[in-house]
């Protein structure tokens, strides 16, 4: 863990986003220190997915500032943010369903190819070296999520839990500095959730910063360093998981039933 004095990796100031008549996010501010896992929780419709979409650039904020590792994000399109080291998974899984498991991960190396332009047409040594390097790295990622044996399978044919893990592997292929996970445990059974938890714990151990939107409180308390509780698009609480359980406001609004 980095001390509180370190410069934050991500700073959000007074974010606003409105869809039609609904204020999805209304004046949200928070900071994320480096190498920290932040869990975002809250009831459905609290604005959690909207927050991830604002961070990753799927939507632009109506107002507010957003800076990541010293770069102002608000005006950048999604692909530029990915290049800065923001990677994400999706609540509704968005794999390239007709591509193989391996091809999904290889697509994640988009920003990392080092091939002279002419070798795209006439494959030379640099082209083949790049191919070997990416396939090696992809194989390691697939081994990490336990999908190496399924490399040739179309992604759409994987079991649900495997698809979640593959999305994480694809996101990791971009070499992120911050990984955004939108309800990674949703729809998973006990064994699959455990498989997910082991991987997330390993990533945390390597110092990868993560923002995790999740309903599974057991997963949240075991993984997260910090918790942000959202309610009607605003911050209800921010602090450690332990402090959250003591917080009267959180208990009243949301946790009461679940942690009692």
């Amino acid at each position: 863990m980095t001390g509180p004095g370190a410069a934050p990796l991500l700073t959000a100031e007074d974010l606003h986003k409105r869809f039609g008549g609904v204020q999805a996010v209304g004046g949200l501010s928070f900071t994320l220190p480096p190498a920290t896992v932040l869990a975002v929780i809250g009831p459905n419709g609290a604005g959690k997915s909207t927050l991830l979409n604002l961070l990753s650039g799927v939507h632009r904020a109506d107002a507010g500032r957003l800076s990541f590792a010293g770069t102002e994000l608000a005006a950048l399109p999604a692909h530029r943010r990915a290049r800065l080291g923001l990677a994400r998974t999706f609540q509704k899984i968005r794999l390239f369903r007709h591509l193989s498991v391996l091809e999904n991960v290889l697509a994640g190396f988009y920003t990392q190819h080092r091939i002279p332009t002419w070798q795209y047409l006439l494959h030379g040594p640099a082209f083949h070296a790049d191919r070997r390097r990416c396939r090696q790295a992809a194989a390691e990622l697939l081994a990490f999520v336990g999908l190496l044996a399924r490399a040739a399978t179309p992604a759409g044919a994987l079991a649900y839990g495997e698809q979640r893990l593959l999305e994480i592997a694809r996101a990791l292929a971009t070499q992120p500095r911050l990984l955004l996970l939108d309800e990674p445990a949703a729809g998973l059974n006990g064994a699959e959730t455990e498989a997910l938890r082991v991987r997330l714990t390993a990533l945390r151990g390597r110092g990868l910063a993560m923002i995790l939107v999740e309903h599974d409180m057991d997963l949240v308390t075991r993984i997260a360093d910090q918790v942000l509780v959202m309610h009607y698009g605003q911050k209800l609480f921010a602090g450690t998981p332990a402090a959250m359980r003591e917080d009267a406001g959180v208990i009243a609004a949301y946790l009461g039933g679940e942690l009692a």
């Binding site: 990915a82 990677a87 999706f90 390239f96 007709h98 994640g108 988009y110």
Partner: peptide
């Protein structure tokens, strides 16, 4: 296959 996913990979 999916533009939103593609953009999330930097494309």
């Amino acid at each position: 296959e999916d533009e939103i996913s593609a953009a999330s990979l930097g494309i």
